[in-house]
C-alpha cells in the first residue's frame, strides 16, 4: 500500500510538469496578449507592465522562472485581477467548488446506488425500465438545459428556492446547483450499479449465500452489493474531479463564485498565470483523487491491483 502511494506520488511529478509545460507553451504560442483589449498604452507604461510580469524576457527564461516560482508554492500575480495573486483567487474559488462538488458527489452516490440496486432487483420489469429510461435521459440532457428548467419551475414559478447567488454557502442557495450538477452522475452511477449487480447476482457465490439460508435483502445489500460497487469506486475518481473542479456552466447559470469560471475567463483574457494555476490545481486534484480511489479499491477488493479504470464506461 505504501509502495503504491509512493509510486503514484513520484509518478505524479513528471505528469504535473508535463501538464504545466504543455499549457505554458500553448498559452504563449496563442495569438493575442493579456493587455490587448485595453485602450492604447504608452510605450513607457507597456514597458513597466512587461517588467512587472516579466514579459520582457525570452520565453525559456520566463518558463524557467515560472517553474521555479511554482515549486516554491507561488503561482504568481494575476494579469486580469490586478491586485490579487493567483493563490488568492484560487483560495477564493476552490472552497466554493469543493463544497458544491462534495454534496453533489454524495447525492450522486446515494441516489445512484439506490436507483441502480432497485433496477437490478426488478431487472426487466417496470421499475427497471422506468429507472433506466430516466437514467438515459439524465445522461443525455446537458446541464445547461436542466438548469434553466429547474430555475424556471422551482425558483421563478414556485419561488421555493433562490434563482442564484451564493450567500456564503447558505443551504437554500446550494440546492439547485448541487442537484443540477449531480444529475448526470446519478444516472451514470445507477447504470453502472445495475449492470455490475446483475453480473454479480449471476455468480455462484450468490447461490452459496442463498443456500446458507441468508435472507434475500441481506444477499443483495451485503453479499452482492459490496463486490458490485467496485466499478463504482473506479468511476469515483473521474467523477470527483469532474464535480469538484468547478463547473463553468453551473457557476455561470447560478452566479456562483467558483473556480470554473476563472479558467474560461482567464483563457479569454490571456491571463497566463491564472490559467496555469487552475490547470495545476486540477492536475493535482486528478492525481490525488485517482490515488485515493486506488487505495479505496484495494481496501474493498482484496484480490487485485486495479489494472485500469474499468468503470470508465460501465
Amino acid at each position: 500500500m505504501v509502495e503504491l502511494v509512493v509510486k503514484r506520488l513520484l509518478w505524479g511529478i513528471p505528469v504535473l510538469w508535463l501538464i504545466l509545460t504543455l499549457t505554458f507553451f500553448l498559452l504563449r504560442l496563442a495569438p493575442g496578449g493579456p493587455f490587448d483589449q485595453d485602450r492604447e498604452l504608452s510605450p513607457a507604461v507597456e514597458q513597466l507592465i512587461a517588467e512587472k510580469y516579466q514579459l520582457d524576457q525570452s520565453l525559456p527564461v520566463q518558463y524557467a522562472q515560472y517553474l521555479k516560482r511554482v515549486v516554491s508554492g507561488d503561482l504568481g500575480p494575476s494579469f486580469q485581477y490586478a491586485d490579487l495573486t493567483v493563490n488568492q483567487l484560487i483560495g477564493l474559488g476552490l472552497p466554493v467548488s469543493l463544497q458544491i462538488g462534495f454534496w453533489a458527489l454524495l447525492l450522486a452516490l446515494l441516489l445512484g446506488v439506490a436507483l441502480g440496486a432497485v433496477a437490478a432487483l426488478y431487472a426487466n420489469r417496470w421499475p427497471d425500465t422506468v429507472a433506466m429510461l430516466t437514467a438515459v435521459i439524465g445522461i443525455s440532457t446537458p446541464n445547461f438545459v436542466i438548469a434553466p428548467l429547474l430555475i424556471l419551475w422551482l425558483a421563478v414559478h414556485w419561488q421555493w428556492l433562490p434563482v442564484g447567488g451564493w450567500s456564503g454557502g447558505e443551504w437554500r442557495h446550494l440546492v439547485l446547483p448541487v442537484v443540477t450538477l449531480s444529475l448526470p452522475y446519478i444516472a451514470a452511477i445507477a447504470r453502472l450499479v445495475r449492470g455490475s449487480l446483475l453480473e454479480i447476482l449471476s455468480q455462484p457465490f450468490i447461490r452459496t449465500a442463498q443456500a446458507k439460508g441468508v435472507a434475500p435483502s441481506r444477499v443483495l445489500l451485503y453479499h452482492a452489493l459490496r463486490p458490485a460497487l467496485l466499478p463504482v469506486i473506479s468511476y469515483l475518481g473521474p467523477a470527483a474531479v469532474g464535480l469538484m473542479t468547478g463547473s463553468v456552466v453551473i457557476e455561470q447559470i447560478f452566479g456562483i463564485p467558483g473556480m470554473g469560471r476563472f479558467f474560461v475567463q482567464g483563457a479569454l483574457n490571456r491571463d497566463y498565470t491564472l490559467v496555469l494555476g487552475v490547470v495545476l490545481v486540477v492536475g493535482v486534484m486528478m492525481l490525488l483523487f485517482n490515488l485515493l480511489v486506488d487505495v479505496l479499491y484495494r481496501w474493498v477488493d482484496p484480490r487485485t491491483v486495479p489494472t485500469d479504470a474499468a468503470g470508465a464506461r460501465g
Binding site: 455468480q203 443456500a211 439460508g213 441468508v214 459490496r226 482484496p302
Partner: peptide
C-alpha cells in the same frame, strides 16, 4: 425454507473458485 437451508439441508457446489464471495 430459509430456516432449513444451510441448517437442515446444506449444499457444496462444483466451482470452489467462484462459490466463495471474493471480498469477504
Amino acid at each position: 425454507l430459509r430456516r432449513i437451508r444451510g441448517n437442515d439441508i446444506a449444499m457444496v457446489f462444483q466451482e470452489p473458485m467462484t462459490s466463495l464471495n471474493p471480498v469477504f
